[in-house]
Amino acid sequence: MQPVSSPPTRPGGLVAAFLASLLILFIAGPVLRLLLDATPTSLAGAARDPELRASILLTVLTATAATGLALLLGVPLAWFLVRARFPGRRLVAGLIELPVVIPHPVAGIALLLFLGRRSAVGGVLANAGLEFVSHVPGIVAGMLFVSAPILVSGAREAFHGVDPRLERVARSLGDSGFQAFRSVTLPLAGRGILAAALLSWARAVSEFGSIVILTYNPKVASILIYDRFTLYGLEAAVPAAVVLLLVAVAVFLLVRLLQRGHETA
């Protein structure tokens, strides 16, 4: 049994507890307030709204595509950053975290300049049939840009938790590098990578700033909420906001469950 420490009783402890509770209230208050609107009536109303349904479906699909791409490209990158020693490793590690500090509309403008029809890359891709601006791939690109760092960071942490000597033992037992990765590293890091993927997905779902610049239409849920709020007011935006919030809470609980399982494993 874990020892339970007694609550702080000194004046300093009480002040710290008061300040901490203010922040907790600041975060929990708005979330709980919005959740209060998640009544069966409001959810049923949201379910009958075809535009909202289409928007949620689009958000889920594009976020899933972005997370799939982040997994495909980010897991090998995370593995390289943890296991390999190569020139510029720190630079690459820093670069992949850059989107975290870039304001998202700025990310949207950067992506527009890079993937727009008039850019070299965007031009080639458009000629190949892959249009980004005002098309669904633009949504995926915006989501990928902001969510990939979360996945890479989580996967790096997961790989850090796997002792490289386990892989070496597997190699001495006849595994190739890839077999050792598949049979030892991935199963052991899998839970951490899955948690990172869920967080990355949730981040993709909530993305607004870059998508509003790249692809305003078709509308993902975050843009639809903004659209309805600016056009029709708060009441019109709440049902969509409630649905998005429930999705976010579900993902959050799932991630906590995975992390808890990992700690007790």
Binding site: R165, R168, V169, R171, S172, D175, S176, V184
Partner: peptide, 28 residues
């Protein structure tokens, strides 16, 4: 590469595969 050397290796901390049962560790 290590897999072509035919060498058995036991580390100080043993490094058993934590996701496998004892039987599957030995069979690996």
């Amino acid at each position: 590469p290590p897999e072509q050397r035919g060498v058995g290796f036991v580390y100080q901390q043993y490094h058993l595969f934590p996701h496998l049962r004892v039987r599957d560790n030995i069979r690996y």
